[in-house]
Simulated scan of single mutants.
Amino acid sequence: MPIKIFHTADVHLGMKFTRGYDPAVQERLIEARFQTLRSMVGMANEQTCDLFVVAGDLFNGLSLPRKDILRAADILKGFEGKAVLVLPGNHDYVSSEEENLWTKFRDAMSEHTLLLREPRPYLDLKPDLGAIFYPAPCRAKHSKTNGIGWIREYPKDPDAKFHIGIAHGSLEGLSPDFSADYYPMSPEELRAAGIGLWLMGHTHIRYPDVESGTEARILFPSTPEPDGFDCSHPGYAWLIHFHEEGSVLYQSLRTGRFQFFVKEEKIGSEDDMSALKSYFSRLDRQEHLVKLKLRGRAPGRIHDELSLLLQEWKDCVLHLEVDLSEMLREITPDDIDREFTEGSFPHRLLRKLAREQENPNSLQMAYQLIREVKA
């Protein structure tokens, strides 16, 4: 019989979202991470999973309010399978301080939760599931050395059906860890450890990036709830069937509620505006956050329409950030005649630049400067 594992990581409970969101939006984003954890426990129960694994960074830091720690422990008590396994990651690393994060969590967690604080084999589930777990807990936020070295050297029990590694850190070729500061690991190191399956955390994207598969033995689930505009996916976790003979089936489950979008568009015509209107019409007021960057040169009527639409679009999404620094107004002779007295210095200068048209940016800059002085 296979064991069924629900694999998540990087939940980051307690993340503050200090980017500059409206306070009501900020509170919803903070709360969503707790709701997503609860939702994942429910999904794992529906799938009758044996194990619920958090491969690091259940919490966003070490200094969380006690009520948040107790709330997380209480949510995990709702898992109906054999055990919950929680690995300290680089944000919620093992600390030597008394009354630290994990002391409070351990006092509140259920008896079927394993807190993987030590780099040693955990044999607790060998009698029930035939599984031994080999964790690599983090002991600081940064480290140029990973914690999996002991696993390769440790003799593997041939009577165990499943050997499962749980680690948190960057993976060579996948994670953007250019200075090698986040417990860097290579696929070769992981494969050489003699482990049948690696459940990983730290990298906030899904790896492999597939809906399901059977080939990989190193799995990153992604963060389950998107946390910013550098996170373009909707949040995932893995549902894993690990068979005794070593075969694996993994399926990606969508877990997040909110989604962040970065939209960059060139605007110069009515068709461009129509496409942008269509885009915003498909977004959800309750769930979508958008960073919009527009560039190009458009006639005044489009600029005026855009100003009105931006106000409307703020009501179409939960949060909207707009960058118009590269969005220029096309200056026409009619604009110049309408705003400046014929024969005046500004009128003559702008008309001359408009006729030359060698460098439209010169006309744009002169027009803006004169308007600012005039104002």
Results as ranks from 00 to 15, higher is better:
Pro23Ile: 10
Leu129Val: 06
Phe260Trp: 09
Trp198Leu: 04
Leu276Met: 13
His243Leu: 07
Asp304Gln: 15
Ala44Leu: 03
Ala73Thr: 13
Asn90Val: 11
Lys16Gln: 14
Ile151Trp: 00
Ile75Gly: 11
Arg152Thr: 13
Leu353His: 10
Asp107Ala: 15
Ser143Tyr: 08
Pro23Trp: 10
Leu350Cys: 05
Glu372Pro: 00
Arg355Asp: 15
Ala108Lys: 07
Ile205Glu: 13
Arg38Gln: 14
Gln311Glu: 15
His243Pro: 04
Glu99Met: 08
Asn90Ile: 09
Leu328Thr: 02
His319Thr: 14
Ser96Arg: 12
Ala167Gly: 08
Leu292Asp: 06
Lys291Cys: 10
Gly173Lys: 00
Glu98Tyr: 07
Lys314His: 12
Arg106Tyr: 09
Glu356Met: 09
Leu37Gly: 04
Val86Tyr: 08
Glu188Phe: 02
Gly343Ala: 10
Ala216Phe: 02
Met200Tyr: 00
Asp22Phe: 07
His347Asp: 05
Leu369Glu: 12
Ser269Val: 03
Tyr182Arg: 05
Ala83Phe: 01
Leu129Ala: 13
Tyr182Glu: 08
Val41Lys: 04
Ser95Asp: 14
Ile218Leu: 06
Lys144Met: 09
Asp230Lys: 12
Asp230Pro: 05
Arg282Leu: 15
Asp284Lys: 12
Glu189Met: 08
Gly14Glu: 11
Arg295Val: 02
His204Gly: 02
Phe105Thr: 06
Pro234Ala: 08
Glu330Cys: 00
Ser344Lys: 02
Asp304Val: 13
Pro65Tyr: 04
Gly14Gln: 11
His202Ser: 06
Gly61Met: 03
Pro2Tyr: 01
Glu330Gln: 11
Thr145Pro: 00
Asp271Phe: 09
Tyr122Thr: 05
Pro346Leu: 04
Ser247Trp: 10
Met185Glu: 01
Gln286Arg: 12
Thr8Ile: 09
